[in-house]
Amino acid sequence: MEKILLVEDSKNIITVLKLCLKNAGYQVKVVCNGVDAVKAAFDWKPDLILLDIKLPKMNGFLVCETLRGDEIMADTPILMLSAKAEEEDIKKASELGADDYLIKPIEPKGLLKKVKEYL
């Protein structure tokens, strides 16, 4: 079973995305801040990371940069999730090594399509 690390601090979004992913057959681990995201990524070694940008303790950009700087996590797909649709944020995510940038709200079918594409 493929493992997905969901890094999100909104309880409503967590509920919807976790249910969607679990129903599609994925094992899901949820963390709600950037510091825990880095720790969980190294400890749990997910097959894919769904990463919000606006997070407590450490933002998603810094999490992405930290993970991409380590050879263990360098090839793990990272899909950024954000309500921020500014070109500047999308470009920054790409420069830091994110594989894709998904704008919230995202439909579950669209999310699953992207997840399958990167797995």
Score class of each variant (00 low, 15 high):
G60S: 00
I14F: 06
L62I: 10
Y101Q: 05
C32L: 10
I4D: 04
S94Q: 14
R68C: 03
E71C: 09
K18M: 12
G97Q: 08
E65A: 11
K22T: 14
G97T: 07
P108E: 04
A37W: 04
E65D: 12
K91R: 13
C64R: 02
I90C: 07
A40R: 11
I78T: 02
F42G: 07
K104V: 08
L19R: 13
K54V: 14
G110T: 07
N33R: 07
L96W: 08
P108N: 01
I90H: 07
D52H: 00
P105C: 05
S94M: 15
L81D: 07
D36P: 05
E117R: 10
K57E: 13
K22F: 09
V7Y: 04
K54S: 07
A40G: 09
D89K: 10
I53D: 00
M80R: 02
L112C: 00
G25A: 06
T66Y: 02
V35I: 11
N33H: 12
L62G: 01
E2K: 15
K104R: 09
E2N: 15
P77A: 03
I90Q: 14
D36V: 04
K92R: 15
E86Y: 10
L111M: 05
A93D: 07
A98R: 03
C32K: 15
A93Q: 03
C64D: 02
I4Y: 08
P77Q: 07
I4P: 00
P105V: 03
K22E: 15
V63I: 04
A74D: 11
G97P: 06
D43S: 12
P56G: 04
K39E: 15
E88L: 11
L19I: 13
K11R: 15
V115H: 01
V31M: 06
G34Y: 02
N33C: 07
R68W: 05
E65Y: 10
L102W: 06
K84V: 14
V31D: 03
K84W: 12
V38T: 09
A85D: 15
D100E: 13
N23R: 13
S94H: 15
L55S: 03
C32H: 05
Y118L: 02
V115D: 00
D47E: 09
E107Y: 08
L62Y: 02
N12C: 12
